[in-house]
């Protein structure tokens, strides 16, 4: 053993005091405990969120029951609260936005994922990702000062209104549709498109007949995610929807959305019932986005799995 090199004597061999190692081993437990605590905090926050929305809306829920959802009058002074105008505004603006953004977004995604030369595709994708980072309040700003005057010329009496909000929303959700659809298309196995190309299909035929159907679920997923975003979008809509709790005869007329009324009235709500009604609107919004997000994830996971199986 003498031939072993001197440095080895520095080593804490088996006879190291046990406390040293016990301390180190405790490190694993400490690390586990700290990180598990953080993970549990996520659960706690979410539960707290649901509970808070549920319990703080108790007053409005017991007073109005389900008729809250179909009431057409929102009158804080009279203490009468019906959510229908907001539901209408939220759903209609989002649906219109989807109708405008989906064809454009999926088209762009097809171009980026399948048809464009890689170099160009990378550059454009990068810009799309930057676009997704633009804050919604900036879309709202442009909505008020650029889009609303245009809409007035196009026949909207006030410039602001349901249609204006829908256009702003469409522009906002476009980058999400593009980047998620693009990923769904990219997750289609190579062999699928190569097989089609080998049979003499043109690039477009391979894309449209093979790749797009294959990625269908993922593309639907992107649509649902975009819809969830549109429903919950607050600032841009608040700034251009007109903030009038009515169900107008025309889409060009002003309306209101759930998120917008919360944003506008929350700090001014002095009556408990008013606050409670606003929180119940928050609960409704939460429920809507929850369902849509769950559906979207399911679809995206299903496409990915399909890709992995092959």
């Amino acid at each position: 053993m003498g031939s072993r090199v001197a440095t080895i004597e520095h080593l804490p061999r088996a006879k190291t005091p046990r406390t040293f190692f016990r301390r180190l081993r405790a490190g694993d437990h400490i690390a586990w405990a700290i990180t598990a605590l953080a993970a549990a905090a996520v659960l706690a926050i979410t539960l707290l969120l649901v509970w808070e929305l549920y319990s703080s809306s108790a007053l409005a829920r017991t007073k109005f029951g389900w008729s809250f959802l179909i009431g057409r009058t929102w009158d804080p002074v009279a203490g009468e609260f019906g959510a229908l105008p907001f539901l209408y505004g939220t759903v209609v603006t989002s649906a219109l936005a989807l109708a405008m953004a989906v064809p454009l977004g999926v088209g762009a995604a097809i171009f980026l994922a399948e048809l464009a030369p890689p170099r160009i595709s990378d550059g454009l994708t990068f810009i799309v990702e930057l676009l997704a980072a633009v804050p919604s309040v900036i879309y709202g700003l442009l909505g008020i000062f650029v889009l609303a005057p245009l809409m007035r010329r196009a026949g909207a009496p006030y410039g602001v209104g349901i249609m204006t909000a829908a256009v702003v929303l469409a522009i906002m959700i476009l980058p999400f549709i593009v980047s998620i659809s693009r990923e769904a298309l990219l997750s289609v196995p190579r062999e699928q498109r190569e097989a089609a190309l080998a049979l003499g299909a043109t690039r477009w035929e391979a894309t449209w007949q093979v790749v797009v159907p294959y990625a269908r679920l993922g593309i639907f997923g992107s649509v649902f995610l975009a819809l969830a975003r549109a429903l919950g979008e607050t600032m841009a809509v608040t700034m251009v929807i007109g903030n009038t709790p009515q169900i107008g005869a025309s889409l060009l007329e002003p309306g209101y959305s759930i998120a917008a009324v919360i944003a506008n009235e929350f700090t001014e709500a002095v009556e408990d019932l008013h606050l409670s009604a606003l929180i119940e609107l928050g609960l409704v919004l939460f429920g809507l986005t929850l369902v849509l997000n769950a559906l979207a994830r399911l679809l995206i996971v299903m496409t990915k799995r399909k890709g992995a199986e092959q």
Partner: peptide
Amino acid sequence: GLRVNGWMRKRPLAEAVEH
């Protein structure tokens, strides 16, 4: 491997690495 076993001092560490 030495550091995770509690070796911190520079000199012995450098010697052990060379060795």
